[in-house]
Computed example of a mutant assay.
Amino acid sequence: ATEEAFAELVCPITFSLPVDPVTAEDGNGDSVRWARPRPPTGIAMPSKRGCEDAEDETAQELRRTKSATNEAMNEFLCPITFLLFSGDKVDAWKLKLKEDEEVAEMRRKAEAGQGWAMCNLGVWYKHGQKGLAKDFAKAFEWYKKSHEAGDAVGTGGLGRCYLLGNGEVTKCPMRANTLMCQAAERGSKLTCYHLGRSYAEGLWGFPKDETMARRYYSMVASALIEDCTAGAKEGAATWLREHPTT
């Protein structure tokens, strides 16, 4: 019954539940999102017992009222809709709405000049997070703006773009080293970790240098910006324990 009721509401084109205002035959243009929080007369709220019966009655009531007026539809949808409709479809729909709002808010802050917000957009585009498609060019653009706005984490991200190269960005180890050293000195734990690992293992064109590795791995603990994972912190600490000074 739940799947049938969901099918009655879901848009056949976008496969999402309604959000924008809709107009019924009576001309009422109330939005589904603003539905009044009470069920229509005669429909029992789901309970631990008899939940399946309540779902069946609710689905039947929906089929009777869906083509009538928005007045009846509005009373039906909230709060019963989100109590009855659950599962992958609704979860994905709600997650998409949440992520769209987060991205829009982050863009507003970035456009207002917040360097950390620019950096976050760079991270999301780089990894394809928050519903955004992976786009290294856009990630590079936002990291660059973040760096220019004075954000240390953005500076480190820009340095890693030059370090790894991808798409339209050509590898430039010298530029990468300059930017990453700046970010590390300004307190980015993550950049300290990457530099330590680069020197410890001789990665990405860096020479294998235990002294430099120790320097940057040691800075992970004291750096002020908490932008790296617990795993990275533990990795740095483990290397330092295994390579004591002589």
Rank of each mutant, 00 (worst) to 15 (best):
residue 1 A to I: 12
residue 1 A to T: 09
residue 2 T to S: 15
residue 3 E to S: 14
residue 7 A to L: 06
residue 9 L to K: 11
residue 10 V to Y: 10
residue 11 C to R: 08
residue 20 D to G: 02
residue 27 G to Y: 04
residue 32 V to C: 13
residue 36 R to Y: 08
residue 41 T to V: 10
residue 45 M to E: 14
residue 46 P to E: 03
residue 47 S to P: 10
residue 48 K to Q: 12
residue 48 K to R: 05
residue 52 E to Q: 11
residue 52 E to N: 09
residue 57 E to Y: 06
residue 58 T to V: 12
residue 59 A to M: 06
residue 61 E to W: 10
residue 63 R to Q: 05
residue 63 R to K: 15
residue 64 R to E: 15
residue 67 S to H: 15
residue 68 A to G: 08
residue 68 A to H: 07
residue 70 N to L: 01
residue 72 A to Y: 10
residue 73 M to E: 09
residue 77 L to T: 12
residue 78 C to I: 11
residue 82 F to L: 14
residue 83 L to M: 13
residue 84 L to K: 01
residue 87 G to H: 00
residue 91 D to W: 03
residue 93 W to V: 00
residue 93 W to L: 00
residue 93 W to P: 05
residue 96 K to C: 00
residue 97 L to V: 02
residue 98 K to W: 07
residue 101 E to D: 09
residue 107 R to W: 01
residue 108 R to A: 04
residue 111 E to V: 02
residue 115 G to I: 01
residue 117 A to W: 06
residue 117 A to F: 06
residue 120 N to V: 03
residue 122 G to P: 02
residue 131 G to Q: 03
residue 131 G to M: 01
residue 139 A to G: 03
residue 140 F to S: 04
residue 142 W to N: 00
residue 144 K to G: 00
residue 149 A to V: 02
residue 150 G to H: 01
residue 157 G to Q: 00
residue 158 L to D: 01
residue 159 G to F: 04
residue 174 M to G: 09
residue 178 T to F: 09
residue 182 Q to Y: 06
residue 185 E to M: 10
residue 188 S to K: 14
residue 189 K to R: 06
residue 190 L to R: 14
residue 191 T to F: 06
residue 197 R to N: 10
residue 203 L to I: 01
residue 203 L to F: 04
residue 208 K to S: 05
residue 210 E to W: 07
residue 210 E to H: 11
residue 214 R to M: 15
residue 214 R to H: 15
residue 216 Y to M: 07
residue 222 S to L: 15
residue 222 S to I: 15
residue 222 S to V: 14
residue 225 I to G: 07
residue 226 E to K: 09
residue 228 C to G: 02
residue 229 T to E: 07
residue 232 A to G: 07
residue 233 K to P: 08
residue 234 E to R: 10
residue 235 G to R: 05
residue 241 R to Q: 12
residue 241 R to H: 13
residue 244 P to C: 09
